[in-house]
Simulated assay, not measured.
Amino acid sequence: MTNALADHAQISVVSNFSELINANFQGDQNAICWHRSLLGDFKEIVAKLELKENMTEVSVEDLLMLQLSEKANLARNVILSDIQQLTDFGASPSLNLLKNYERDDELDFISTDVYSYHIDRSPIETDTFLCTYHGPASEILPHDQVEQKILIPEIREKLKKLYDGPEAEFEAFLEEYFFDLHYQPKPNSKPVNLGSGHLWRLAVDHPTQQVLPCVHRAPMENDGEYRLLLIC
């Protein structure tokens, strides 16, 4: 899989955490992957964690309280190490047990939930880190394979009718309700699945960012299967 990922212009593949945090985004490249094959039984951890509602944040204490087999203990140590390294770096990692995210079905012509291709935005210099330990993984697309939804004429017209305010403030309205963050894949687009166990760093839209932010989306979950995801 390493070679396949390296073939994508938007992806840089590295071999350790230090390279992951020190590599620079450049050109079309806005996703960096610490590619790894993890040992351990992550499925057992998922089975022993308690899901509250559709998403539960799992603390380090929650992990440490689990009675696990030797293989699942290896998996726990990987997660704890990832959390520690990201915390030492200055990030605020969150380990989530997911049945599903909230859906945005209020408008039938545009979706703004995480299942829609979108970018992340921040007022400060930061990146998005994520790793799927169990369950389906997120997908990314390069900018030449997507179109910003607010630029699609029929969607834009419907948003203007929804807004019904001063023309000069329309763009601010689009930002306020996050419509401008979402993208439509073009015909014949080829998403890259982020896979299981790899720790990713994705470019975010902020004032000092030198590259285009990474367009990504959450996967549709499999019935009866929870995701275990580290994100910050």
Rank of each mutant, 00 (worst) to 15 (best):
L86M: 15
T2W: 01
Q10P: 01
N24H: 14
D205K: 05
F178T: 15
D223L: 13
I152P: 14
F129M: 04
Y117T: 12
S37R: 07
A203W: 13
K52R: 10
E106V: 12
K149T: 15
L159H: 06
S92E: 15
F89C: 08
N24G: 10
V114Q: 05
Q210P: 06
I83D: 00
P123W: 04
L39C: 03
Q26L: 04
L80K: 00
G135D: 01
A31S: 11
N73D: 12
S111I: 02
A172C: 06
L130R: 09
E221N: 15
K43Q: 13
E44K: 08
R156S: 14
P123H: 05
C232M: 01
N3P: 00
E50F: 06
A31M: 08
V14F: 05
L199K: 09
S37G: 01
P219Q: 08
A218M: 00
T126G: 04
G195P: 06
A31L: 13
S116K: 06
I140C: 00
Y101F: 09
M55F: 01
R121G: 03
A6H: 02
P213V: 11
A23I: 11
P142R: 11
A172W: 04
L51F: 06
E106W: 07
F178L: 14
G224H: 04
V211D: 12
P166Y: 15
Y183Q: 09
K52F: 04
E221W: 10
I21T: 15
K99T: 02
V58W: 04
M65K: 15
H8L: 05
K43H: 10
L49V: 02
L95N: 03
Q85T: 00
E171H: 01
F179G: 04
K186E: 12
H8C: 09
H118L: 04
Q10H: 12
E175G: 05
D127Q: 11
L66A: 07
S12T: 00
I140V: 01
I79M: 02
A203L: 13
H198Q: 00
Y163F: 15
S92F: 13
F89S: 07
A72V: 10
A203D: 12
T128D: 05
R36M: 11
V14I: 10
E171R: 01
P136C: 08
N24F: 11
H182D: 06
P191V: 11
L107D: 12
L202M: 14
C232N: 10
E157H: 10
L49F: 02
D113L: 02
Y163N: 14
D113K: 02
E139N: 04
N54H: 04
C33R: 11
E44I: 09
T208A: 14
G27F: 01
G197R: 03
P187H: 05
E154H: 15
L66C: 06
I152N: 15
S111D: 09
I119F: 10
P219A: 07
I124T: 15
P213R: 09
S138P: 03
L107A: 08
S122C: 15
Y117S: 11
S116R: 07
S94E: 02
P191K: 10
D144L: 13
N96F: 00
P219R: 08
L212H: 08
D62V: 09
